[in-house]
């Protein structure tokens, strides 16, 4: 005789599971800082240094293998000197200097252009292409900054010994002193505010060019971004 067993869908109580996931979610939301979009992926070399990268008032110089330089500016997090504002101020400073030097080829920027720049985490293009770049749609802008798609990306740099006629990289760096945020200038001066970020496999000669330029600007102190490595005693 067959016993008719009534099949019942087993009911699993998901409440506890839900509690756990919500907790995890809260943890991730609170601890996270979002990965910022960078033009190229860089794996920094490892070092035993335990000093953390400052979160505010920091200028990051991303150096690619082909010696293209990208600049990223972070302002104060919780004051009126936000990153966006700092970027806009630096941009206006640089453009002003540029227009003084090139009276025939002045860069004209609208407020919208400046705002676009303010929202860009990392920038690296010759100044001459700037206003054109600001008017492109978002994807096109990213493409133009990507060294894989645009070999001419990056802030122009040379050996940098010519103090009279500074290259664009030096102009950008000098503009950092002239913002309304005294903390940024202070951080740059003390060296804690400049971080060079380069891939471990970059030839040193490429990084050296950047260091030489900083040295010419009397920014003798700076930091190198590294990943943590532990050494046993």
């Amino acid at each position: 005789m067959k016993v008719k067993t009534e099949k019942k869908a087993p009911f699993i109580d998901m409440t506890a599971m839900s509690d756990v996931t919500v907790l995890l979610l809260t943890f991730f939301m609170l601890t996270s800082t979002f990965l910022q979009k960078e033009p190229t992926t860089v794996i920094t070399p490892a070092s035993v240094s335990e000093e953390k990268v400052p979160e505010q008032n920091l200028v990051t110089l991303l150096v690619t293998k082909d010696s293209q330089i990208f600049l990223s500016i972070a302002g104060d997090r919780d004051s009126s000197y936000s990153s966006e504002k700092m970027r806009e101020e630096v941009l206006l400073n640089v453009v002003e200097e540029y227009n003084k030097k090139h009276p025939n080829k002045k860069i004209q920027l609208t407020n919208a252009d400046v705002a676009v720049f303010g929202n860009t985490h990392m920038f690296g293009l010759p100044l001459a292409q700037l206003s054109e770049w600001c008017k492109l749609p978002t994807e096109k802008r990213d493409d133009l900054l990507d060294p894989a798609k645009n070999p001419k990306a990056g802030i122009p740099i040379d050996m940098g010994k010519d103090v009279e006629n500074r290259n664009e990289f030096q102009q950008w760096m000098l503009a950092l002193y002239n913002t309304s945020n005294p903390n940024l200038a202070k951080a740059v001066k003390s060296g804690k505010g400049i971080a060079i970020k380069a891939d471990a496999t970059t030839p040193y000669s490429v990084v050296q060019v950047v260091m030489d330029n900083l040295q010419t600007l009397k920014m003798n102190k700076f930091t190198l971004m590294t990943a943590l490595k532990t050494e046993e005693d």
């Binding site: 601890t31 996270s32 979002f34 240094s49 003798n220 102190k221 930091t223 943590l228």
Partner: peptide
């Protein structure tokens, strides 16, 4: 959130070059 965040903060190595 796990995929979009950086948990590990980079370290820095301080350098001072002579002027």
């Amino acid at each position: 959130f796990m995929l979009c965040t950086t948990m590990i903060k980079s370290q820095t190595l301080q350098i001072s070059l002579p002027s």
